[in-house]
Write a protein that binds this DNA or RNA. Structure first.
Lengths: 218, 218
DNA sequence: TATAAAAGAACGAACGATCGTTTAATAAAT
DNA sequence: ATTTATTAAACGATCGTTCGTTCTTTTATA
């Protein structure tokens, strides 16, 4: 799958005189990780300030304080960059959601932990959140075919729900459907929070944890 | 509110010699309603095919089979056009959602009707749906400040839920929060439907009607 | 250890294409 | 005869990307 030349930067193939091959890492000049980080950050900020259609490579470069052409050292093109940013952010979110989730824990408690994790993550990472919401609904996402890696990210969560179903505590429905009832209420309240319509406080969180549980419990 | 000069096209004010005023309609050449309709339709198609950032006025004009400059006869600019398209589509959706909803009907039945209406509307209007999903999360929407008219559109639905709360049938929480538990599961399944992951059939609909009701009932 | 050769990072400038919008002229309806 | 819809053409600006070059680091040679 990896058609990206950047992925192979550090690998060198060498054929010896006797025709044996050796593989080793090249000791080439390192790419500056701060650079790609700055590019990501600039992209996030601009997307949330002026939107998809007005965020250009030039503007990204200017805010990241690099040359436009430098971006193409790190990414094949604009789509590639946005796609990599998306998977990166989505992975951070999924890791945060399952943090502190234990297999032997009661499912009801686990789902509450997950929803609290999600709320904390969204409120603390406004840029991530708004970017995900924009990108999730763009045709570009479908075009990039990232479904496999997405499924992998959320496998722990699906497994956890699977156990709840096995125990007979949850309704016998698709895990992704049950997850829907826990995920979207949190994002909806986070959106209202950022729009200034009511704070997403502890009380609000408790309310929706109750509602979501009522929905998914057997 | 109406700062759009286009809204006043058919009205002419005239001051007579004795200072009296008369108001009459001008007999100007009619704007072709098919034109603005074609522009809307072309925009919807392109947005869902190539996304926000690649949908230009030229492409819209070409697909609508009009000149790019003709678009500016009907709309002030690109933002104005997108905003008008959004309110138009959103209004169609809200009208569809409350269709057949009667005040004297049991609330549980009413909410089921609403969710079925929503599913039917989304499945029959793929372009509308995908456009709404994209636009709802863009910074442009916030910039246009359409909240007032949106609130007005969904007032019947909020009132209906308000009655349910008054009867003690629904939980005593914000109507918009209760609505969230009915709205998002439908849109989530519609998305999966269009992605080819399982048909959004009658069985699936019955499932989420049950779950949503479990969530919002008192 | 000193130094030249090599390789890739980084950049400014420029590419053709296209952007959203305007203008000036024409076509069509009243 | 007006008036306005409609358009083709053109506006300056900016788009995503590439090119040729310069820096900077690493490798090879001495």
């Amino acid at each position: 799958m990896s058609q990206d030349p950047h992925d192979l930067d550090r690998v060198i193939l060498c054929r010896l005189d006797d025709n044996r091959m050796i593989v080793y890492y090249s000791l080439m000049r390192h790419k500056d990780e701060n650079k790609s980080e700055a590019i990501f950050q600039a992209t996030l900020e601009l997307l949330n300030e002026i939107g998809f259609s007005d965020t250009s490579m030039s503007k990204i470069a200017k805010r990241a304080q690099v040359s436009p052409s430098t971006i193409y050292v790190y990414f094949a093109n604009k789509e590639d960059m946005l796609g990599k940013l998306y998977t990166r952010v989505k992975e951070k979110m999924s890791l945060n959601m399952v943090h502190g989730l234990e297999a032997d824990q009661p499912v009801q408690q686990g789902m509450a932990v997950m929803m609290r994790n999600l709320r904390d993550f969204l409120l603390e990472n406004r840029d991530y959140f708004l970017f995900l919401e924009q990108f999730s609904n763009s045709p570009l996402l479908a075009k990039l075919c990232l479904d496999e890696s997405m499924a992998l990210m959320f496998k722990p969560l699906h497994d956890y729900i699977g156990r709840g179903k096995q125990q007979g505590v949850l309704k016998q429905l698709d895990a992704s459907l049950l997850l829907t009832y826990c995920y979207f209420p949190v994002t909806a309240l986070a959106k209202e929070h950022f729009k200034g319509n009511g704070e997403f406080n502890e009380d609000r969180l408790s309310e929706i944890i109750k509602l979501s549980w009522d929905a998914i419990k057997a």
